[in-house]
Design a binder for these strands. Structure first.
Lengths: 255, 255
DNA sequence: TATTGACTCTCACGTTACGTCATACCTTAT
DNA sequence: ATAAGGTATGACGTAACGTGAGAGTCAATA
């Protein structure tokens, strides 16, 4: 019961080309060749191939696999343990890369916050009474916890007037772009709009990290509260609903 | 104060060849060329190079870096956050590789130390009456032919108790993994689950080679027969249905 | 000034593990 | 007999350079 290349390929999940290649480099030779030059494999080769693929999954290169296949179990243990060290190094390198990314993102955020200033709208410093109103809503609906709110406030405790200006400017720019999108009849699920929503999400994320439900909940706040309605209506009458729809889609796709 | 290739290379820690290459692909052009065709760089290029190297460290490929360098900070943030997801995936893949290595090493260690045997489940030698039941089903539904059955039996005619134990152990291990997958809410079409199904397919393939229809038919046998139901329920109540779904997907994709 | 050593340039092939044609032969079923 | 599908052997492409080869250039020294 010999396998042809295609059959072996299907069973083991590799390509025919891979089998050709493994033959070529001597990693896995067929059991025999037909006189038509066809390659025929048997159970033994299937088992060998499975071992090869096992090591390949572990990111061994084919040269090493070649060596491993000809070695005994003691050697295999050695090799595996040596490989483990390499993987651990990879691991910690990736971890440090992740930290670097986080730092860079927040740095860039700060930079965009600090960029030039145009007056699109006057500065609107916080009205504490209303703010509390929103907070009550967010807490009631379990969109944010008390801890979330505190951390969020800590983010801005050192902000100067200038910082608030930049912040509002970023938001206004974003909403202006969204208003254009509404005007152009773009769909909330279109790639362009979703990219803008991602910007919205990133801005929010700077203060607090929403999940699927809470991000949608935040959208609802925009609808419920007259102040938000008014704010968004300045850009476009249909913007609130459009934004909420787009946020929902974004949340369902990405969060 | 222009740098020649070698000087810039030394300062930035790359090779001269790299600078040649970056010039060639347009990633970093020198400030100007001398009439001797020499490349001359200035501070501006040094800063650009440092940015390039920053992203290179984060494992961006040069194409992406090229794009990044021409984009604004918002786009950079997007790109970085997208990249972060990729890195996180890499991270968890490496973590699972480390676990696999540990398991393999201890397995090999056990093997070399003694030809141990673990009792995962008692041996269940065949009950002939029931077996005939299954065979009738398989023949009726044209899932296997008489010839298939005979060949399949020939495979096991020389099996010893040990062989059956090993066989059952493999099966149990596989089902255990699948049960974990169910528990983790993995989708039947996910790569992880499909890899497990491939193992199932290979085990079946040892006895008989199913095609798309018959492999799906085999799945149905599992649902129809109370013995199979009971067997799979031992691992997880939803396992049968999950397995059948996953087998169907596997068959449609690979057979 | 001539020479030497360090530096530069432009090809161009090698690397890894295959993917992707191209072209031609083989097998199997209708 | 013809068509469909499998198989074989090239041979080029990939990513990001490393590593020469052969030839011209620059700066310092004898």
């Amino acid at each position: 019961m010999a396998y042809t290349v295609k059959k072996l390929a299907q069973i083991s999940g590799v390509s025919v080309r891979t089998l050709h290649f493994y033959d070529e480099i001597g990693l896995l030779k067929p059991a025999y060749y037909g006189e038509n030059k066809y390659r025929y494999y048997e159970e033994e080769q299937l088992l060998l191939l499975q071992q090869i693929l096992f090591f390949r999954e572990l990111k061994f290169n084919l040269n090493d696999i070649q060596r491993i296949m000809g070695s005994d179990d003691f050697d295999k243990i050695d090799t595996l343990l040596a490989h483990k060290k390499i993987l651990k190094d990879d691991l910690s390198r990736i971890q440090s890369m992740l930290r670097t990314i986080d730092k860079t993102v927040s740095h860039l955020w700060g930079k965009t916050k600090m960029s030039e200033q145009e007056i699109f709208d006057g500065v609107r410093p916080h009205d504490d009474k209303k703010q509390k109103d929103y907070e009550t809503y967010l807490l009631d609906k379990k969109i944010m916890t008390q801890k979330d709110l505190e951390q969020s406030w800590k983010r801005v405790e050192n902000w100067q007037k200038e910082d608030w200006e930049k912040f509002h400017k970023s938001g206004d720019e974003l909403n202006q772009s969204l208003a254009v999108a509404v005007e152009k009849n773009l769909a909330p699920e279109s790639a362009e709009v979703q990219k803008l929503i991602r910007r919205h999400y990133e801005m929010v994320n700077y203060f607090w990290t929403p999940n699927k439900e809470t991000y949608i909940g935040l959208g609802n706040l925009y609808r419920e509260h007259p102040d938000f309605q008014k704010y968004y209506a300045k850009f476009h009458p249909q913007l609130v609903e459009f934004l909420i729809k787009a946020m929902k889609i974004f949340a369902e796709r990405n969060l």
